[in-house]
Nucleic acid binder design. Sequence first.
DNA 1: GTTGCCTGTGGCACCGGGTGTCACTAGCGT
DNA 2: ACGCTAGTGACACCCGGTGCCACAGGCAAC
Lengths: 200, 200
Amino acid sequence: MTTAQADLRADTRARLEQVALELFTAEGFERVTADEIAEAAGISRRTFFRYFPTKADAVWGDFAGHVARLEARLAATAPSQPVLASICAAYLEVNDYPPEQLPALRQRMRLILGEPALLAHSQLRYADVDHAVAAHVARRTGVAPAALVPRLVATSTRAAATTAFEVWLAGGEPLADGLRRAFDELAAGFPALLSAPTGH
Amino acid sequence: MTTAQADLRADTRARLEQVALELFTAEGFERVTADEIAEAAGISRRTFFRYFPTKADAVWGDFAGHVARLEARLAATAPSQPVLASICAAYLEVNDYPPEQLPALRQRMRLILGEPALLAHSQLRYADVDHAVAAHVARRTGVAPAALVPRLVATSTRAAATTAFEVWLAGGEPLADGLRRAFDELAAGFPALLSAPTGH
DNA sequence: GTTGCCTGTGGCACCGGGTGTCACTAGCGT
DNA sequence: ACGCTAGTGACACCCGGTGCCACAGGCAAC
């Protein structure tokens, strides 16, 4: 096991993920029933729900491992590095996918950001990320993790990451560039918003 | 009607909201069935779902009107005002509740932020807010609404508002103060994060 | 006032996500 | 051969949500 999450047979899990992703992409998340996924993967509906607590969870791959890596990176940052920069670096590193994995990532993210039900569900998954980042900020600044600044930094940096993903999905620019740009904007307090209106 | 959202009898709707809020608070969102709400309100389950498309929607009151007021405020800001300040002002104005409404607001927000199912659902509702704010930023800066900066400003200002609500709920400080503080932090690029660590 | 319509309503059957329970099988050590 | 365990399937059940139909009341028009 990589990171405890209803192990069972790892190959079955992978096949299930694959099949679900394919079906969701082809038909739309809501229009695919758990029965169809199960049948297409050659197992029973009941077994599907032993691998994934929710239909939506089939889209997330090893997200728990993702969060764990992020936490590890945050914990390992040099104290000399500014906090915001350390978070940016952690996000960049954790999201530095090899090129051959990009199509799969695109497929996942297109679903997560494009299907309302999955977008809603994402909030639950991202809560772990926010928690980790807020804890990091609290640790580094000596403030309570529940205070305004740690929470705000956590949610707005995640907003930055999500936005970078959206722009990347839309074909705008490489993921890493968008991430960097988003963090730069955040760290600078949106300098572009001080200029005069440019005419409609 | 104030803002088209499945009108029917307004009094029935208000009673339904009231009953649902009370039950959710007392028993927890998931543990209250639509049947129970309907019965407690003296109507049928079927009718409940004519007033609210979803059990979760019973918590949101006239949120569509809320968004509409936000949009109106944004549209009415003076061009001389910096964009970020205009968004802050709009959020402040729209969330300036008279004191006697604060307990009800607390009840709603405690549910929305505390119940996972409602937190997930909130993402769908907030999408409208983000859309409005991004459009405002795009209008003011002459950039496409789907570009990085408008999106990022929209999501991170909403993060600021949400965080202020969380702190307010935790009893920290008045809502308006938290909002202002969160927006100040955002606009300044989190100045607190440049100081040296204060020791663990 | 009877005829029509239009609105709000309840009842019912149905779909789909999710869960608890039980029974079966395959493997594996002893 | 024995027992144990892990993975599985079948079934029944709960609940959120929807489509459909049937019914009641108000309110206009004739």
